[in-house]
Computed example of a mutant assay.
Amino acid sequence: MNLHIKNMVCNRCKMVVKAELEKLGFNPISVELGEVSLAENISANDKLKIADKLNQFGFELLEDRKTQIAEQVKTSIINLVHYTKEPLKINLSLYLSEKTNLEYTQLSAVFSEVEHQTIEKYFIAQKIEKTKEMLTYGELTLSEIAYQLNYSSVAHLSAQFKKVTGSTPSVFKLENLERRKTLDEI
Results as ranks from 00 to 15, higher is better:
2 N>A: 01
2 N>M: 07
4 H>L: 01
8 M>Y: 09
10 C>P: 07
12 R>S: 10
13 C>F: 08
15 M>H: 11
17 V>E: 06
21 L>A: 04
21 L>R: 05
22 E>D: 06
23 K>D: 13
23 K>W: 01
24 L>K: 00
24 L>T: 03
25 G>W: 02
27 N>K: 15
33 L>S: 10
39 A>L: 11
40 E>L: 05
40 E>R: 10
42 I>C: 04
42 I>H: 05
44 A>N: 13
45 N>K: 14
46 D>P: 08
46 D>K: 09
48 L>H: 09
49 K>E: 08
50 I>P: 08
51 A>T: 03
54 L>K: 02
55 N>R: 15
59 F>T: 09
59 F>L: 08
61 L>T: 00
62 L>Q: 05
65 R>M: 09
68 Q>L: 00
69 I>S: 10
74 K>L: 05
79 N>Y: 10
81 V>I: 12
82 H>L: 10
83 Y>G: 01
86 E>P: 01
86 E>S: 14
86 E>H: 11
90 I>N: 08
90 I>Y: 12
91 N>H: 10
92 L>R: 07
94 L>R: 15
98 E>F: 09
98 E>T: 12
99 K>V: 03
101 N>S: 14
101 N>P: 00
102 L>G: 03
103 E>I: 06
104 Y>F: 15
104 Y>T: 10
107 L>W: 06
108 S>A: 15
109 A>F: 06
110 V>F: 05
110 V>S: 00
111 F>M: 03
112 S>C: 00
112 S>E: 14
114 V>P: 08
114 V>A: 07
115 E>Q: 15
117 Q>M: 14
120 E>N: 12
122 Y>K: 13
122 Y>P: 10
125 A>L: 12
125 A>C: 07
126 Q>F: 03
130 K>V: 05
131 T>K: 01
131 T>M: 01
133 E>A: 05
134 M>I: 01
139 E>F: 11
140 L>H: 14
142 L>R: 11
143 S>H: 13
143 S>G: 11
144 E>R: 10
146 A>Q: 04
148 Q>P: 04
150 N>T: 01
154 V>W: 00
154 V>F: 06
156 H>E: 14
157 L>R: 07
157 L>H: 03
157 L>V: 04
168 T>P: 06
168 T>H: 00
170 S>E: 13
171 V>S: 04
171 V>M: 06
172 F>D: 09
174 L>T: 10
175 E>V: 03
178 E>C: 01
180 R>V: 05
180 R>Q: 12
181 K>Q: 13
181 K>N: 11
183 L>P: 08
185 E>G: 01
186 I>H: 02
